[in-house]
């Protein structure tokens, strides 16, 4: 990771998880991947947390590969992958666990991937709640392509319940200009907002 990213990490460090458990950050859609990487590094390495990355718009392998190339240790990271089962990709880069859910079309079923979820048949493969200090959602906006706002709301509410019950930090990014209604929904459900400032992204 370069100096630019370390500066971004420093800026984020004073904001993520300092007041309660639920966070959205706002940035341009094009910077989402970079900010997510920096947040994962902050949580996994600096804070030694264990967590889950929910990957909504591409097979999890891309994020896993990104983390390993940037030498971020992901032995304490699990993935919930909504895409790869469709595209048939194989497991790489040795994360803790990878759980596949029923495609990107049912965002409301995401929670079944956790042992605390609703459906029994998922339980054995599910992510144990004790292994989860945080949940990061990689590109929540991409779920909009296949899901209604109502399904998104259901998903968020369940996520919030899970977070409250097990004291889990949740983080997700949104571009308020590109996805205004989604931003409105997130604002109504989630307490803390971190505005990624342009100068944090500067080289």
């Amino acid at each position: 990771m370069n100096e630019k990213d370390l500066r971004l990490e420093e800026a984020l460090s004073s904001q993520v998880g300092v007041d309660g458990n639920d966070y959205i950050f706002t940035t341009k859609q094009v910077f989402m991947v970079r900010v997510n990487l920096v947040i994962l590094k902050l949580l996994l390495e600096n804070r030694k947390k264990r967590g889950v990355a929910v990957v909504l718009d591409r097979p999890y392998g891309y994020l896993a590969h990104l983390l390993s190339l940037h030498r971020v240790d992901q032995t304490n990271l699990s993935y919930i992958d909504t895409v790869a089962r469709f595209s048939g990709d194989s497991v790489i880069d040795n994360p803790k666990k990878v759980v596949y859910t029923d495609g990107p079309f049912h965002v409301e079923l995401l929670m079944n991937a956790f042992s605390d979820g609703y459906e029994d048949d998922f339980k054995t493969k599910a992510i144990e709640m004790e292994d989860v200090d945080f949940i990061l959602i990689d590109n929540v906006a991409s779920a909009l392509t296949y899901n209604t706002m109502e399904a998104m709301e259901t998903c968020l509410k369940t996520l919030k319940e899970l977070s409250d019950k097990h004291n889990i930090l949740i983080v997700m990014g949104v571009d308020p200009h590109a996805h205004r209604a989604l931003y409105g929904l997130l604002k109504s459900e989630i307490k803390n907002e971190i505005k990624i400032e342009e100068r944090w992204l500067h080289g």
Partner: peptide, 10 residues
């Protein structure tokens, strides 16, 4: 970045 209104999405 200019402000985006916080009125609810509904």
């Amino acid at each position: 970045m200019d402000e985006v209104s916080e009125k609810t999405w509904k």
